Simulated scan of single mutants.
Amino acid sequence: MDAAEFSLNAPGQVIPIATQGASTVAFLPDPLPPEIPVNRHLLRAVETARAALAEFVGESRLVEDISLVTNPLQWMEAVATNRIEGTHTEMSDVLLQKAAGPSSDPTRVSSNLEVLRSLEALEAGASWISEGRPLSLAMIREMQSLLLRDARGGETLRGRFRSSQAYIGNRAQGPASARYVPPPYEHIEAAMDNFIRYVSGEPTYSVLVDCAIQHYQFEAVHPFEDGNGRVGRLLIPLHLLAQGAIERPNLYLSAYFVEHEDEYFDLLKGVSTRGLWEEWIVLFLEAIRVTAGRSRQRVRRLLELGDIYRLRVREATRSQVALAAIDLIVRQPVVTTSQVKDHAKSSYPAAKTAMESLANLGIVNRLDSRMYRQQAWVAGQLIDEIYDV
């Protein structure tokens, strides 16, 4: 990283360092809050994002079973946030591993586990906030620890702030050519103490603007050896939940950031190098606006498909087990016969017959694969229209 990249507007200190036998610079962001001029352009972006979010929250209240809102959106987030980090998985593969157990392909199992651990970390953080506990460093460490539960060598990195210099870039080229070098590790404790005071206090600007600021700050400090991007993006809905901007952890921006990945990373760095706060915040607010609208559409379509499937079943059969299976499938689009049996409180043969009838109706497909431990049934239309990133 070159010191010449940083203008006088850079909101922090450029610190000369020597690491891995090379001389370069690191960046230490200033303590929060920053001074950001508020103009009409920014205010319009705030109001537009707030209105879209309010519509999504309002419609979500009308859904009796809140899992129909949260489940698909959480799965999308888990897949998308890992995709940003270079772990490319198919939604159907991850859902299959969750429902039917690991496949016989170790590479696929490992990638899917990263997604599943992201889901666990998000659920742990949401439970923490739902219990009335504030955002805290302990919660952040716990989430990072869950993310790295299956990582090779992760035991020494889990739940601890880093104790060495990190850099973001091509490992083969070394830190001098890094895209970004976060602050030396001895600054992390103070930076994270300031960070947690900011996110758990009263809003400085507005909840949505503060959320954009805290996401930048977390990524700039880069407190962990691994998992910073994923933890930072999982903190977005948790911050909004803790501040009362949303009522459930159901607004996830990673899919938008996947679509605008270059702009996302360029503006995160642009804040550090040139103080591009307004440009970054406007992008973040646009991510909220677009995501809230898309989430509303996905939930509406999920409810619509559930009604369509129930109507097909009622027209074709009197099976109450088949209807109960539909209730399960709209919550999780990959199921096993055993899961249907348990959900419907039926016998195994009755559950199997019900799923075969759903297959005949084109609602599910049977996956006859020796790669998984159990036979699974896949609702492909639900995955394609509702779950896929």
Rank of each mutant, 00 (worst) to 15 (best):
H41S: 09
L42T: 07
R44W: 04
A45P: 07
V46T: 08
E47F: 08
E47I: 13
A49V: 02
A49L: 03
A49K: 04
A49Y: 01
R50H: 03
R50P: 00
A51T: 14
A51I: 14
A52W: 02
A52C: 07
L53Y: 08
E55H: 13
E55N: 13
F56T: 01
F56L: 11
V57S: 03
G58E: 10
E59L: 15
S60T: 05
R61C: 01
R61G: 00
E64C: 00
E64G: 07
E64R: 13
D65V: 10
D65S: 08
D65E: 14
I66L: 06
T70Q: 03
N71W: 00
Q74E: 12
M76C: 08
E77T: 00
A78H: 04
V79E: 14
A80R: 04
A80Y: 01
N82E: 10
R83C: 02
R83S: 08
I84N: 06
E85T: 03
E85L: 02
G86R: 09
T87Q: 12
T87G: 13
T89F: 03
T89K: 01
E90T: 02
M91G: 03
M91D: 02
D93C: 00
D93K: 07
V94M: 07
L95M: 05
K98A: 14
A100C: 03
A100I: 01
G101I: 05
G101F: 01
G101A: 13
P102L: 09
S103R: 04
S104D: 05
P106L: 10
T107Y: 07
V109E: 11
S111W: 06
S111P: 01
N112C: 15
L113E: 11
E114C: 00
V115A: 08
V115W: 06
V115K: 09
V115T: 12
L116F: 03
R117V: 05
R117F: 02
R117I: 06
S118Y: 05
L119C: 02
L119T: 04
L119D: 03
E120W: 00
E120H: 04
A121I: 10
A121C: 06
A121T: 09
G125W: 07
